[in-house]
Each structure stands twice: as structure tokens, then as C-alpha cells.
Amino acid sequence: MSSRANSPFQLAVCAEMVFLDLPFVERVKRIHEAGFAVEIWDWTQKDIDALAATGARFTSMTGYISGNLLDDDQIEKLLETAEISIEIAQRLNCPSLNLHGTGLDSQGLPVKPVTEVTGAMWIKAYQTLCAIAKLGERHQKVFLLENLNTLVDHPATPFAKARDTLTLISAVNSPWLKMNLDLYHAQIGEGNLIELIRESAHFIGEIQVADVPGRKEPGTGEINYPAIAHALYETGYRGVVGMEAWASGDSSVAIERFQQAFAVRL
């Protein structure tokens, strides 16, 4: 199966969430053999040489180990570990590195919960992201700021909504800092996805998808992903669309459904 033959987008699959009965490197091989690019999360627990040897095309990975956007000592850690992550991205020939509004633990919960975002926090986050963009420019890597949802998966995460990330990204206004617009999270927290895509189009570096409820592949829930694909196409977007979703059953069937959802029929 070839994603390029059937979709105008660069289709990728998150290896953390499919083929769970296989060792991680084998998951990457299966995704690659199916014709998709690969996305990974925390690289610190992975055999980077083995991943590189698969021949897979990696489109994004977590771009930090620790730190956040707001606290001076944590900002220093964020920048330091982002630079280390860039070295790994270079070994994998991965163009994009993913960030969140704060550091997340192994359960996806914020290491330092924030219940109220103040004006001073917005300014500090903007300044930190300016520094991140400069780091990306220096190494020719794009950092992506991902929106999350606080109702189901990531409570007390600052700058979680897609319109929050859009505000920050547009303020920095650098080609080395883009949005990772996660439509699963946006549907839970905001809705109105097609209008959100149109508003954000100029600042999108990647789209991530899963259906709602359940965070499974497109076609298992309430989001009309063929309509989403058409709207994305109309904006001129031709970049990465990553399936960051659990398989509802067989993983091969799940990624085929994902491919079908993003085969734009004009």
C-alpha cells in the first residue's frame, strides 16, 4: 500500500499506538512497509541506531526531555534537552520536533499543573518560544507546538487549546516554529474544526488525527474526516497528517481506514 498514491498529504502513523503486540522496532518496520512515514514519542527509551536502520521516514518526534515554557530553571532545561533532541532528530533525519505547553509525565499529566494562565505567563511563554525558534533555525529543524485537551487526557495543561497555540505561534511568526494541530484534542476542547483549520492554515506544520470518543482511527467516531481532508486540501496544505490513534481492532485495518479518510476525492 502506498500513501503517496492515494493522498495529497504526507501520511504518517504513530508507532507508539499501533501493532502493540510487536517490539517497537518491528512496529516501525510494519508501518514503513505499509507505505507510511513514522512518528515517535520519547526517544530516550529507544534504540536510535536500530530505528535508523529500518529505512523508515520519520516525520516527528518529541523535541525535549524535561522543562517547560514558564519557569526560568525549567526553561533552561527545555532548551538544553531540545538541543539534545535535535542531535537525535539528525540521526533519524527527522525534520520536526514536538513540544507541549508544559512537561508531561508518563501518564500524559502536566509535571507542574497550571489552573490559571496569567498575562505574565503568556509573555514568558512567548519569549521561550522565540528562543526555541532560534534554536530550530540554527539547526534547520522545525519545532511544533501541539494543542492538547484538558477535559479528558491532559487536565491543568497551560496553553492547551488550539487557539492558544495559534496565538503563540503567530506572535513568534517564525518558519522554525509551527503548530501541531491535533484535531482529536481540538474536537474535545473546541470543535468547529474546519473553521479552525482555515484560521490556522498559514501556521500549521503538522496535523494529527484520531476520532472522538475513544482516540481510535478515523471512521470510528463523530469526526467527518473526509470533510476535514477536503478542507485541508482547499487551504493548500500538503504536509504531514499523522494518525496518533489507537487501533480499534487490527492495526493494519486501522491504518488503511486512516489512508482512505485522507484520500481526497475532488
Rank of each mutant, 00 (worst) to 15 (best):
S2T: 13
R4I: 14
A5K: 13
V13E: 12
E16N: 14
M17W: 07
F24T: 06
H32T: 07
E33C: 07
A34K: 11
G35Y: 02
G35N: 07
F36P: 14
F36M: 03
I40A: 09
W43S: 04
T44A: 13
T44E: 13
D49P: 00
A50S: 01
L51C: 01
G55W: 01
T62A: 13
G63F: 01
Y64M: 14
I65N: 15
S66F: 02
D73G: 01
Q74S: 12
E76N: 12
E83V: 00
I86G: 01
L92C: 00
L92N: 02
C94Q: 05
L97F: 08
N98S: 13
L99P: 13
H100C: 13
H100N: 14
S106N: 15
Q107P: 03
Q107Y: 07
L109P: 11
L109R: 13
L109E: 09
P113N: 12
P113F: 04
V117N: 06
G119P: 05
C130D: 14
A131N: 07
I132W: 09
E137S: 13
V142L: 11
L145C: 05
L145K: 09
L148N: 00
N149M: 08
L151D: 15
D153C: 11
A156C: 15
K161V: 09
L166F: 00
L166E: 03
I169S: 02
W176A: 09
L177V: 11
K178G: 00
K178A: 08
N180F: 06
D182I: 02
L183P: 06
G189P: 10
E190H: 12
L196Q: 12
S200L: 05
S200P: 10
A201E: 05
H202Q: 14
G205M: 02
Q208F: 00
R215S: 03
P218T: 07
G221V: 03
A227Q: 14
A227E: 12
A229I: 05
L232G: 10
L232F: 01
E234A: 14
Y237A: 11
M243Q: 12
S251I: 00
V253D: 15
R257L: 05
Q259G: 10
Q260L: 08
Q260V: 10
F262C: 04
V264T: 08
